[in-house]
Simulated assay, not measured.
Amino acid sequence: MTGPNTTPDEATPERPADPFKPLGNETRLEILRVLYDHLQSTSREATLSYSTLRSEVGVTDKGNFNYHLRQLDGLFVERGSETEPTASTGSGTGSDTDTETTTDTNSSSNSHSPTSTDSSPDGYRLTFAGFEIAKVIDVDAWRSHEPCGPVVLDDPRENPVDTSANETDDGPTAQDPLTATYEDSVVEIRRGDDLLYAHAVRPTGAAARGMAVDELLDTASTLWRHTVEQLLKNICPYCHAPIERALEYTPDRRWEHAFSANCDECGSLGGSHVGIVAITHPEAIAFCWDHGLDLTSTRVWSLPFVDDDAVTVLSDEPRRVRLDITFETARLELVVSDDVRIVDTERVCRAER
């Protein structure tokens, strides 16, 4: 995909129409499984010889096996230095008698036809993409599950009451509570119908935690924190390409002061309230620690300054805001630029202003 600052010559190669098409076959999936099991029992660099791989996959027809192996070669499977001792392949000795060169009967002239045998210095292993696919298949990462929740969460706001006028003028009313659910592999934090936070937690990990919502919330908060850290470091959490961030004013949403992130490759990455930018800043971490709040472990939706009341608009063009982290005796003021960077900080005594 060509980004806004790239020329056609600098653009990345066009993606294949269906990169997962090679996986639509039981033999190829079994090849991945066998190589994955071998990797789990050895090391990342260890390879499996051709004859052992074919034997464990259980395909006797060499031509047929070579055809399927070639569909994976270079994308999900690669060849590397043979690190497995010959004896472990079942060949008996280093002078393996099965030394014939194997060729694909469907395309004998193909230069990528597998040629390694037990006595060859070359073997096969998973590429990183192959490992990722095999891992997801192995742990049944996105298995279905029953939803959990909703559960009502502690509210970080000092006054969770709406003091604005209501239709009946009966005085202030309680705002919608903060709730959490786990459904379709995603932990969601909502206030009423408004989605505030969402992060995937694979059902394998959720099941290992007994589908307990409290533990899932700790897990989701940690994952969200890591995602935010990547966004603030200009890294797409999915493809690791550079991203663009921007402050936004969204008066029609629960949070008016937010930021968005966008990746040329992956598109919109979503965003969050602008206050979340403080959770990785050393001055904010130290200030909160001095006042008894550990930013590194507190659930992100429990932070009192992730709220519009903590934000003051300093300018519109370019957009710049001030985020206040306030305790009884002191306040930390963080100035956030239009590209969502903290560009200035100041500690003040509350009595000063």
Rank of each mutant, 00 (worst) to 15 (best):
N159D: 15
L126N: 03
T117E: 02
V152K: 13
V161C: 06
D170F: 04
D118T: 14
S108M: 09
P150V: 09
R143A: 14
P156D: 08
E100K: 04
E132Q: 09
E82I: 07
W142S: 10
S81R: 14
H68G: 01
G63L: 06
W142L: 15
E84N: 14
R79G: 14
G74E: 09
N106P: 02
D170N: 05
R70F: 10
A87P: 04
G171W: 01
L69T: 01
C148F: 15
V59S: 04
T163R: 06
R125S: 06
K62M: 09
D162H: 00
A165R: 12
D96P: 06
S113V: 09
R143W: 02
F65S: 12
E84H: 03
D170S: 15
N106G: 10
Y67Q: 04
G94M: 11
P147W: 07
P160M: 06
S120E: 03
R157Y: 15
V139G: 06
W142G: 08
S91A: 14
G74C: 05
S109Y: 06
S111C: 04
P114N: 11
F131W: 14
N64S: 13
N159W: 03
K135I: 02
E146V: 12
T127L: 07
F128G: 11
T103R: 07
V151I: 15
P147L: 08
L75A: 05
V59Q: 14
D170C: 12
T99I: 09
H112E: 07
R143P: 00
R125W: 01
A141I: 00
D118I: 07
P114Q: 01
G94A: 15
N106I: 01
G74M: 00
T115Y: 02
V151L: 07
S81W: 12
G149P: 08
E78K: 10
T127H: 03
L69G: 03
T115D: 10
T83R: 03
E158V: 05
T60P: 08
P172C: 03
T115G: 07
D140A: 08
S116A: 09
P121W: 03
G130A: 03
V139L: 13
A129V: 02
L69R: 04
D73L: 07
S107M: 02
N66G: 10
S81A: 13
D169W: 12
A141V: 03
T173Y: 03
D118L: 02
G123H: 01
D154S: 14
S81I: 07
N66M: 13
